[in-house]
């Protein structure tokens, strides 16, 4: 009897696995950069091409690093959440404008709001590749030492902000103060 139950047992395991699988989005690719130092970069600023923004500017404080583009529809949805967050002043938001046109990007900021401390302009998309970006928007939480601690793939929803990002930011700020 037991011998004949083997296939049932294996099948039960299979069903359990599939049930777990239903809860995952197969398109979401976890970043291997979590826990690693944020990649070096040095790019012209979006609004002031003569100035540069680099990794150094992110250090010494917990930051959000948000990758966006004016051609990206869901970035627009995200903007409301980011704007509110910027007004609350909890955490500075740095932007990486990805494969965009400078004028289009600046107009977009005028039209939909500008939550960013400053934006880097990554026209060729090279820096984004170094950060492992595969779709916009994406948002990284970077701690005071410049280590990537979390990556949000897709727009930041209020749920993700309140449940994941803000608690993490507060904890990291605590850590930095100590």
């Amino acid at each position: 009897m037991v011998r004949y139950l083997v296939s049932f047992g294996l099948f039960a395991i299979l069903v359990a696995l599939l049930a777990v699988g239903l809860g995952h989005d197969p398109r979401r690719i976890p970043s291997p950069l979590i826990g690693k130092p944020a990649p070096q970069f040095s790019l012209p600023e979006l609004a002031h091409p003569e100035r540069t923004l680099s990794r150094k500017d992110l250090l010494g404080k917990v930051t959000l690093f948000n990758v966006w583009a004016s051609w990206c529809v869901s970035c627009r949805d995200e903007m409301r959440v980011l704007d509110a967050l910027a007004k609350s002043g909890v955490v500075p938001i740095y932007g990486l404008n990805y494969k965009d046109h400078r004028t289009a990007a600046l107009e977009w900021l005028k039209a939909f709001g500008n939550p960013y401390v400053v934006n880097a302009f990554d026209q060729a998309g090279r820096v984004a590749i170094n950060w492992g970006v595969y779709g916009v928007p994406e948002t990284f939480v970077v701690d005071a030492k410049g280590i990537i601690r979390y990556k949000q793939i897709g727009p930041i929803t209020p749920y993700a902000l309140n449940r994941k990002i803000l608690p993490l930011v507060r904890r990291l700020q605590e850590e930095a103060r100590r």
Binding site: I29, S31, P32, L33, I129, G132, Y134
Partner: peptide, 8 residues
Amino acid sequence: LVARYGDF
């Protein structure tokens, strides 16, 4: 590539 995007 793996360093940026993982084994995927």
